[in-house]
Amino acid sequence: MANEKLYLYPLWIRIWHWLNAALFIILLLTGISMQYSNPENPFLISFELSVQLHNICGIALSINYLLFIFGNLFTSNGKQYKMKTKGLFKRLYDQSVFYLFGMFKKQDPPFPISLENKFNPLQRFIYSTAMYIGFPIIIASGMAMLFPEIIIPQLFGVSGLLVTALLHAIIGFVLSLFLFIHIYVCTIGNSIISNFRSMITGWH
């Protein structure tokens, strides 16, 4: 691994990232509070407050997402999310084998971090999927529920709102799994906190 420091995370991506993280966590907590709404459970946020917070944070996260999209459209950071399909599976496999076995045998990472490749193939794949498939779906379904008049009332004999809400909850669940795995994998660095420090200072 290169010893000299790399400036990997420009300021705008750091701002986007921490805003996104904070909003996402609020959305997750209020989303769970609504889904499992129960006035007797002291750990849940009250339904009324949850609805309000969830609406506000959902809109804020969507706007913040535009920052991500435009940032990646107009700066070189966008390249990091592009993948060649050729050999993709092999690269993902190699990286997984490293996480599962290689790193315990003190092997070197198969895809060292560089300015051109700040993500390893697994990160690249998962970040792209989350940001370019997961996010659009969850934002679109969320907006649809905020403005229910745009939802098709009936879909295959089932309420359109139901389908939308189910999709929203399922993607939300998948993204929350991503969050847990993401935070855990970020502890795998030079030290446990080094990646988090990078995301604050920008320097790797």
Partner: peptide
């Protein structure tokens, strides 16, 4: 089938599945 009331609609199987995953 007819509507979706947040907090009232709970699909038992989806719930179990999500806890398992």
């Amino acid at each position: 089938n007819d509507s979706y009331v947040i907090g009232a609609n709970r699909n038992k199987y989806l719930n179990i599945l999500s806890v398992v995953i």
